[in-house]
Design a binder for these strands. Structure first.
Length: 273
DNA sequence: CTAAATACCTGATGGC
DNA sequence: TGCCATCAGGTATTTA
C-alpha cells in the first residue's frame, strides 16, 4: 500500500482526527507478531505518555512523545485509522486508547509492517533512520547533483537506484515507474549511463509526482484507505503504472511491462530512452 | 565491496 | 463451487 504520499495521507488523517496533545491510557496488541517482534515493555512504556505531534520521515510514521518516539512502518498493507468508539476489524493488530475516548488502530493484513519505540536522543542513529537518504520534496530535498553523483559507477538499473532508500526516500514501485516516465528515462537504463540533464529531469519528476500524489490523497491500487476510510485519487491519473498494453498518453504507443529490480515495471518505449 | 535473490505474510484474481 | 498458481504498493537479510 504505502509509499511516501500514502504515509503522508495517513499522517494528515490522524492529525485531523485527533486533538493533539493526546494522552495514552491503554494499549493492546494481537497475538500475532508483525515483521519484527514488538519492543519489550511496550505497554508500560506507552501508558501515560503524551502524543505531542505526528510526523513522517521517509515511509515512517512518527509519534512524538517528548523523550520517546513511536515509529511505525506500514510495510505493504499497513494502515492506521482512528475510531470513536472502538470498533475492531479483521487484521487489526495494535491499538492505542486515548484519554479523550478516541482509539488509534493499526491494521495490517500481510504483517510486513513493524513498530519500534526509540529514545528521541537515539532516533537519528537508529538502524531504521541512519541510512536514509534525502526526502524527494521540501527545503532539504534531494539535489539533482547529488542524485547524479549517486549514479556514478553504479551497475544497477536507475529504477533500483531511486527505490533504494539510501539514495532518496519514499519512492516505491508505483512512483518509480511514474517518475521515470515523466523524466523520459527507461527503468532498465544503467544508473551510470544517466546524464546530468537526465538526473535533473528525474529529480524534478520525482518531486512533482510525489507532491501531486500527496495533494490527491495518495494512490489506491488495491485497498489503501486514509484515516477517514476513503480512497486516494491519484490512481485515476497514473501515466504508466498498471497500464500494460494501453496507449501512452503522449504518443499512443502501447505501454510496456517487465519485471525490473524484482518488481512489475511499466514504461513507454518511445517516450523513454 | 556491489547487486540480485530470498524471506516474511494474507488475500485477490483468474484459469481449469 | 473448489483448487491451484500467480501477483500485490517494502525492505532487512542472505547469497552470489
Amino acid at each position: 500500500m504505502p509509499e511516501l504520499p500514502e504515509v503522508e495521507t495517513v499522517k494528515s488523517g490522524l492529525i485531523n482526527f485527533l486533538d493533539l496533545p493526546e494522552t495514552i491510557i491503554g494499549m493492546q496488541k494481537s497475538s500475532k507478531r508483525l515483521r519484527f517482534p514488538y519492543p519489550t515493555m511496550l505497554k508500560s512504556s506507552l501508558i501515560g505518555k503524551v502524543i505531542h505531534r505526528i510526523e513522517r520521515r521517509a515511509k515512517y510514521l512518527i509519534f512524538d512523545m517528548g523523550e520517546y518516539v513511536l515509529l511505525s512502518h506500514l510495510g505493504m498493507t499497513g494502515n492506521w485509522r482512528g475510531t470513536e468508539p472502538f470498533r475492531s476489524e479483521q487484521h487489526d493488530h495494535f491499538s492505542l486508547k486515548l484519554r479523550s475516548g478516541k482509539v488509534l488502530i493499526y491494521n495490517d493484513a500481510r504483517r510486513f509492517g513493524y513498530l519500534d519505540l526509540l529514545k528521541k536522543s537515539e532516533f537519528y542513529e537508529s538502524r531504521w533512520i541512519q541510512h536514509l537518504g534525502p526526502e524527494p520534496i521540501g527545503p532539504k530535498g534531494l539535489l539533482a547533483e547529488d542524485l547524479f553523483c549517486a549514479t556514478r559507477k553504479k551497475q544497477t538499473s536507475i529504477k533500483a537506484l531511486i527505490m533504494n532508500q539510501e539514495n532518496v526516500v519514499g519512492v516505491g514501485n508505483i512512483y518509480a515507474s511514474e517518475s521515470l516516465f515523466f523524466a523520459g528515462v527507461r527503468p532498465k537504463k544503467r544508473a551510470k549511463r544517466l546524464t546530468r540533464l537526465e538526473a535533473r529531469k528525474l529529480t524534478e519528476s520525482m518531486a512533482e509526482v510525489i507532491q501531486s500524489a500527496i495533494e490527491q490523497g495518495g494512490t489506491t491500487i488495491r485497498d489503501f484507505k486514509n484515516a477517514g476510510g476513503s480512497s486516494g485519487y491519484f490512481q485515476t491519473q497514473l501515466a504508466v503504472y498498471g497500464r500494460a498494453g494501453q496507449p501512452c498518453h503522449k504518443c499512443a504507443e502501447p505501454i510496456q511491462t517487465e519485471v525490473v529490480a524484482g518488481r512489475a515495471t511499466y514504461w513507454c518505449r518511445i517516450c523513454q530512452k
